[in-house]
Design a protein around this nucleic acid. Structure first.
Lengths: 228, 228, 228, 228
DNA sequence: CGCTAACCGAGACGGTACGTCTAGTCTTGTC
DNA sequence: GACAAGACTAGACGTACCGTCTCGGTTAGCG
């Protein structure tokens, strides 16, 4: 996962244990100090590792924090509640729970902020965090389609656009509620978000279907009812 | 706007011109250097002002940047396109245009990140930026109600919750699209966002009305049709 | 005495006390640690001063040590023993006493070594130490001339060459005996050195005088006898 | 010549070529970088040798540099010019030529400086460099005695003292002239040095003879005249 | 109109962290 | 077991800013 990897054949190999210790130490430092007061010297000391070892593997604070935070989001699991709404609500609550942890709160926004001026960093974030978690949207939709809650895909490009839109809306809304508005992401709020989102998507699907094939109002109504 | 104001009566008054120069210099520095490389010493030099003058008025970098960025969002105006969807699309595009400016990109996420560990800073952000722009949602809804696109409010608490939800969804989605996904917030995407949002809200209003009081399906249908 | 002197008019003036504290701390560190283990961070800590203050005034370790050591040699005084040989022996013993102090031993040779690759440093050493102490040779000779132990100067260029030669011979011999041979510079050794030196110079003066102008053998003989 | 030699019987024998390569690489590094910027890692890389190989043979930078520099002084040869003065002048010029080479300039004073705080290092320097070259003084005196320029030795202790004094005076003067005063050690200066030195010694010998055996002024005069 | 309090610029101050470098040791696999 | 390669701990390096302070000097407004 570290960024600097000449990966030579000879010489002493890099300690695998050091990597884990460093990322754990980074998260611990994020909890205690937050991003801006976190220093690489401190992380090295916590991990019981020399600063040089750290710089040998990561280019700097940003890259290190991305990796440390990315691991947190790999805990996300798509629950199987039996309905699309339940699945969405479940995964949103998990997401909110991660965002409530200080190591994620402090680090995530900070690296996003830095990424506005560092293309390589933005790509690292996209690769390690964003694209990695879109699996949840894709899998959730596929499951709903198997259940018959959603119609099968027809246009692949449109399908990808929709995944992106849903991801931006869900992730963006939860992040904004949690970090900017600083209001609790509780079950009630999640239910409200999910309802608007699924009703809206059903309406769009219905309208699209209508403009293409037939009576859409019905489809939208049915979908709406299924979720309520 | 500065934070430190003993506001004495006697003595030489603070230079009013310095404030504007400092905020402008801050934005210029954000453009050139980004948040993390911006230093107060540099801002002071750009503004032709001593560092002490700066510290006399702001507690630190975060507070200064909040003020500098907040001014940007005061440019937002609710357009009067004749339909709710048009108004929403218009304001979202303006918002995206501001987020595309480097002084906003660099600064906004950074202070949000800092605010996760600094309650006073978060309140400052909410007061200077977030709550200040909720006016757009409130005014937009009122206008839509006058047009008959939306039913009048009944429950004030529910009304406030809805404003918050919409604001989190709109702001969050646009920020995520623009800064995290790093994809363009163009007219097509905005149209998609707006459609999901308004259809979803119409569905909720319809369902809520139906389950509570009476014939709301009409309103929902009308709104849905208005956007299509 | 520090090397970096922008010497501006405005702003907070430099602390005069800091200079003395830093030079004293440097000598203390030389005593305890020697030159190679002396660090500027340690000196700063000893002096109760920030590292930056130190770097603001001296370009580096070498310049600092030159200044710290140079002060030691300003203690040298030309004794007035009544004879040239006595004066020479007295000042050589003082010189040896300074070279016996660890702050001088450690520092002096080290900066000379560094100066072999740094012309500015060599000039600093010459200005602060070498040329500064040539006063002893000049004054000693003048005094001997007033006593009639030495003939008055005729050729100024030759006179300067002789001062340089004597200085190189005296300083070089004592340094070599003390630091390289690591043998004691005691009265017996100093007497031997002085005798060779003064007899040699008398011989040269005698030969030169004889071959150039006139009855100089007398002067040489007198000088030789005065010392025996 | 290396210092660490357990000299075991079994296992792969040490590469003999490595030693020479390392010492040559050390001198090359001294020329390019000087003592303070010379690093053992760099020496190892230049010699095409691993750092461990280097540490296996020398305790550290100081010991390595002493060995590398000592080899330079083994080039010194006592010329046979027919007179004592000529021999002295010849060897002093050779000595000065070595001191003019950057690998000697940089290294010699530095290890002397270090030796002021490291007895083992000082002994290493004395054994490898100082005592080793006293052969020149001893041999030169013997040759002069065979020629009749100098009287034979009577007191062995006094004889040793005189060798040491001459060595300190010659080596010290030349080093001081060359490295501290940074003036050229040219033929003119060497002639001046030699004249003072030999006249002085002759005077001392004469005086000593006088106090022991008879009229010394004569001896001094004769010796002085012989050299002029 | 002069006092005086607070302002202003400049820049030195004690600190902290940076990212790099070197010393010397340790761990591989090869010869 | 010596060797090349290179990762390891430890800690100094010189730089850049931090936020505070000390200057000398300016500028209102009150008395």
């Amino acid at each position: 996962m570290p960024s600097r990897t000449p990966a030579s054949r000879t010489g002493r190999p890099r300690s695998a244990a050091a990597d884990a210790a460093i990322l754990a130490a980074t998260r611990a430092a994020l909890v205690e100090l937050g991003w801006s007061r976190l220093t690489l010297g401190d992380v090295a000391a916590r991990a019981g590792v020399a600063k040089t070892t750290l710089y040998r593997r990561w280019a700097g604070k940003n890259e290190l924090v991305v990796d440390a935070v990315a691991e947190l989001f790999d805990e996300l699991r798509l629950p199987d509640s039996g309905t699309l709404a339940g699945d969405v609500e479940g995964v949103v609550l998990q997401f909110a729970a991660i965002l409530a942890r200080p190591e994620a709160r402090s680090g995530l926004m900070a690296v996003v902020a830095e990424s506005t001026r560092d293309d390589a960093l933005r790509e690292r974030i996209r690769g390690s965090i964003v694209e990695r978690q879109k699996r949840l949207v894709v899998e959730g939709r596929a499951r709903a389609q198997r259940r018959g809650e959603l119609p099968p895909e027809t246009d692949p490009a449109e399908s990808a656009r929709t995944v992106d839109l849903i991801f931006d809306m869900v992730a963006g809304s939860v992040v904004h509620r949690s970090l900017v508005s600083a209001e609790p992401v509780d079950e009630e709020w999640v239910r409200g978000l999910t309802r608007v989102l699924l009703l809206g998507l059903a309406g769009v699907a219905g309208a699209a279907g209508a403009s293409e094939a037939g009576p859409a109002g019905t489809g939208a109504a049915e979908t709406g009812e299924a979720k309520t």
